[in-house]
């Protein structure tokens, strides 16, 4: 099984696994406490502090590990919300058609006619900025994209002759959705899930960077950039570590999603 995984996907899997493991095991592997001040401001890297210290003298590696935990956790939950909401309503609209479809689709058009960052800012200007609020806002705003995709995929499948054949046989909704439509919709949806996750990582990082996401002293990758941004002007690159982390995580998830897409479509039963 493992031998059949192409190199790119293997690299992706290893890195993705590494980041998720780090997120789960953060309290046990972080060398210091998350908000513990252990040194001077912006110390360079040393055997005690591999990545140096941050703007108020906390260990940067510790901050990165805890920050990854927050970022990955929020992105995962928001992706799940986005996915479940979007896919359920998307399939519903496709199978029901008629006014249900019209209602959902026009509403989604409306929400998507405002850039999601702008709409998120508008909503966050009146909402308390807490983790549940962030996750819900991100999840629901993003579910519009999942809705469009799953509706489009499902509509493509419902017009297939084999679905018509099932209806002519007298099959009920359950068989049609779960046995005819879903197996054929799965691979584009799973690949999309990877992309949505990356988008969520970028989204929460951006919000935190703007000061409207995770609030200090909690750490997350966007927040670390914000805290250490001033260092850039003095030639201190502490704010750039999250760039490396976010980019490697995003690229590796992308590689995995690509592989899932080709693997499932190349199955013997693939289209």
């Amino acid at each position: 099984m493992i031998r059949n995984i192409p190199l790119a996907a293997m690299v992706g899997l290893v890195f993705t696994g590494f980041y998720f493991a780090m997120a789960i095991l953060a309290p046990w592997i972080a060398p210091y406490g998350m908000a513990e001040i252990v040194g001077d401001v912006w110390e360079p890297s040393s055997p005690e502090h591999w990545l140096g210290t941050d703007n108020i003298g906390r260990d940067l590696l510790t901050r990165m590990i805890y920050g990854g935990r927050t970022t990955i956790f929020i992105a995962t939950v928001a992706t799940l919300i986005s996915f479940c909401t979007g896919a359920i309503f998307g399939f519903w609209a496709a199978v029901a058609g008629g006014w249900v479809d019209q209602l959902f689709s026009r509403f989604v058009d409306l929400v998507m006619s405002i850039p999601s960052l702008i709409l998120a800012l508008v909503i966050l200007s009146v909402m308390p900025v807490t983790v549940p609020v962030l996750v819900l806002v991100m999840g629901f705003l993003d579910s519009t994209r999942v809705f469009r995709l799953s509706r489009a995929v499902a509509v493509d499948i419902t017009v297939m002759d084999y679905v018509e054949a099932a209806k002519l046989r007298g099959e009920g909704y359950r068989w049609v959705i779960f046995r005819e439509i879903l197996p054929n919709a799965l691979s584009p949806l799973v690949a999309e899930m990877g992309l949505r996750f990356i988008f969520m990582v970028l989204f929460i990082s951006t919000l935190s960077f703007l000061g409207l996401g995770i609030q200090p002293p909690e750490a997350d990758w966007g927040g670390i950039v914000k805290e250490n941004a001033d260092g850039i002007n003095y030639g201190i690159g502490a704010a750039l570590y999250p760039a490396v982390a976010i980019a490697t995580l995003a690229i590796s998830v992308n590689l995995v999603a690509d592989w899932v897409l080709t693997r499932t479509t190349s199955l013997k039963g693939g289209r």
């Binding site: 990356i198 970028l202 990082s205 951006t206 960077f209 966007g222 950039v225 941004a229 850039i232 002007n233 003095y234 030639g235 690159g237 704010a239 750039l240 999250p242 760039a243 976010i246 980019a247 995003a250 690229i251 992308n254």
Partner: peptide, 19 residues
């Protein structure tokens, strides 16, 4: 597309602007 805008900005700022 895997890196948020603000990070591209800081990378450029760090290397081209400051260094």
């Amino acid at each position: 597309i895997s890196v948020p805008e603000f990070l591209i900005a800081y990378v450029l700022m760090f290397f081209i602007g400051v260094k």
